[in-house]
């Protein structure tokens, strides 16, 4: 696979940062179609970019043969987005506190913290086949 594939509200991309902007265009297009306000669109877009970056760097270790899927759903009150990779998984509890004095000037390590701050709910499912993260944001 060498380019993104879109089927309905699902996009699958090769695990490559080159496609981050494509994910953003796809995502923001779907969210605006739902009539979501711009501030929430930005919060969701930031969060998805963090999770796709994590998959590329930490789950797949820049192996561009692997793929990442982004599935967007909604119900009456929420947007629910699932980001799945094919990596080896990780323990979300093992992440250092980015607010600790000794970590404040580090240039990495804030991605998941930002996602948890911006989203209403973040669920992880980690299996031998990869990590699946589902984020939920209220749209009411």
């Amino acid at each position: 696979m060498d380019k993104p594939i879109i089927t309905g509200n699902t996009m699958i991309i090769p695990s490559n940062q080159e496609f981050l902007a494509d994910v953003d265009v796809f995502l923001e297009g779907v969210l605006r179609g739902y009539g979501i306000d711009e501030s929430r669109v930005a919060d969701i877009a930031i969060s998805v970019s963090e999770l796709v970056n994590n998959a590329i760097h930490h789950a797949h270790h820049k192996d561009t043969k692997k793929t990442i899927s982004i599935k967007i759903n909604r119900d009456k009150e929420n947007v629910i987005i699932n980001i799945s990779d094919q990596g080896t998984g990780f323990n979300p509890e093992d992440i250092n506190d980015p607010l600790a004095e000794e970590n404040l000037l580090k240039d990495t390590g804030r991605g998941l913290f930002i996602v948890k701050s911006l989203m209403d709910k973040v669920d992880f499912e980690i299996t031998d086949q990869g990590t699946s993260v589902t984020i939920t944001k209220s749209i009411k």
């Binding site: 930005a42 877009a45 930031i46 970019s49 970056n53 000037l105 240039d107 804030r110 991605g111």
Partner: peptide, 17 residues
């Protein structure tokens, strides 16, 4: 800048330090 994520913040911090 419409928005940035932690990568953008990391670049600002790296430049700052």
């Amino acid at each position: 800048v419409d928005w940035m994520n932690s990568t953008g913040l990391g670049i600002l911090i790296s430049g700052y330090t």
